[in-house]
Simulated assay, not measured.
Amino acid sequence: MENITTNITEILILLFILITFLQSGIDKATDWKGNTGWLKEHFSGTMLAGIVPLMVGIIMIIEIITGILAIAAIFHIIAFNEPLFALYTCVLACITLLMLLFGQRVAKDYAGAFTLTGYFIVSIIGVYILS
């Protein structure tokens, strides 16, 4: 119980990342056709138009890995007071968000890019706290 109270900020950030990325990755897996269809239209007329399924697949895998890593990180913090997986999770979340930001900027979806800022702030605070 002491590890929970001592590391509550880190655990809450990891829970945020877990919910955000695992849900998003699972959504891409369960609604592949809907996601790729919408994104093909979103990226039409850009240099990324021809590789939408590849991009969605890569992002989906990274999001699911990030979510699973968050679960492992929470376990390691609670059980062993070990934050290394937590740092890896936050770094991977930041990298994933930068990939998403790149896509939004290429698609000239500036409002969509802006919405990623909040997620990035939470993730980078996690990196800051854990490093």
Rank of each mutant, 00 (worst) to 15 (best):
G126V: 04
L87N: 07
G67P: 01
L48R: 07
T9I: 14
A86K: 04
T115F: 08
L14W: 04
I51T: 15
I121Q: 06
T6Q: 11
I13P: 03
I78S: 10
H42A: 00
M99S: 14
T46H: 11
A113K: 12
A111W: 01
A93K: 06
T6A: 12
T30R: 09
A79I: 00
G50F: 07
A111L: 07
H76R: 12
A79S: 12
F16N: 02
Y88T: 04
A70Y: 01
Q23L: 12
T115Y: 09
H42L: 00
G103H: 08
Y119R: 02
I4T: 05
I78V: 14
G45D: 12
I68R: 06
L100G: 13
F102Y: 15
D109Q: 10
Y119F: 11
K108P: 07
F120D: 05
M1L: 00
I74D: 01
Y110E: 14
I78Y: 08
G37Y: 00
T30P: 02
G37W: 00
I51H: 13
P83T: 13
L69R: 02
T20V: 05
L14S: 04
I129E: 09
F21H: 11
I61D: 02
A93F: 04
L84H: 10
V127E: 06
I65H: 01
A29S: 08
H42Y: 09
F21I: 04
L39P: 00
I68A: 12
H42Q: 00
I61T: 13
D109P: 11
L92D: 03
H76S: 15
E41F: 01
N3A: 07
A73L: 05
K108C: 03
L15E: 01
V106L: 05
E82T: 06
T66G: 06
M99K: 05
D109G: 10
L100T: 10
V56Y: 03
P53R: 00
A86V: 01
E41M: 00
I77S: 05
S123W: 07
V52I: 08
L12P: 02
I125T: 13
L69D: 02
E82S: 13
